[in-house]
Amino acid sequence: MRHARDVLDEVVRQLPPRPRTEVEQRLRVLDARYLARTLPDPFAARRQWRSDLWWRRRLAGGREAG
């Protein structure tokens, strides 16, 4: 999930305004589901990967890769 969300974030930033808005609307729904199914990672700031991205600061209980 994390790698896929990283890729989506990069793609969204490169889209023209109208398609970007459409994709962002769909992502909000999926992001809400992910937030509901994961917990905050209390050690996210210490990790080497991009802890500035909110989905990188979540714990999924080992049910995902990335």
Results as ranks from 00 to 15, higher is better:
26 R>S: 08
52 D>G: 13
65 A>C: 05
51 S>K: 06
29 V>Y: 09
31 D>L: 01
51 S>Q: 09
53 L>K: 12
25 Q>D: 11
40 P>Q: 08
31 D>Y: 03
32 A>N: 07
57 R>K: 14
31 D>M: 01
25 Q>P: 01
51 S>G: 11
38 T>A: 12
50 R>F: 03
26 R>M: 08
47 R>K: 15
22 E>W: 09
15 L>K: 09
43 F>A: 13
46 R>W: 06
64 E>K: 03
38 T>W: 01
12 V>Q: 04
10 E>S: 14
38 T>K: 03
31 D>G: 02
37 R>P: 00
29 V>F: 05
52 D>Q: 11
50 R>K: 13
29 V>P: 00
58 R>D: 06
49 W>V: 11
20 R>F: 07
28 R>H: 05
13 R>A: 14
14 Q>D: 14
5 R>Q: 10
26 R>G: 15
28 R>Q: 14
12 V>P: 04
27 L>K: 08
12 V>F: 02
1 M>Y: 05
35 L>K: 07
38 T>N: 07
66 G>H: 08
24 E>K: 13
15 L>R: 02
15 L>Y: 08
9 D>Q: 11
1 M>G: 11
13 R>K: 14
66 G>F: 05
28 R>L: 08
10 E>I: 10
66 G>N: 06
35 L>W: 04
52 D>T: 09
8 L>Q: 12
54 W>S: 11
51 S>D: 11
53 L>W: 03
56 R>L: 05
4 A>G: 02
38 T>Y: 01
1 M>Q: 09
14 Q>G: 13
60 A>L: 06
22 E>A: 14
62 G>F: 03
64 E>G: 07
63 R>A: 15
11 V>P: 01
59 L>K: 11
48 Q>H: 10
23 V>K: 00
4 A>I: 04
11 V>D: 02
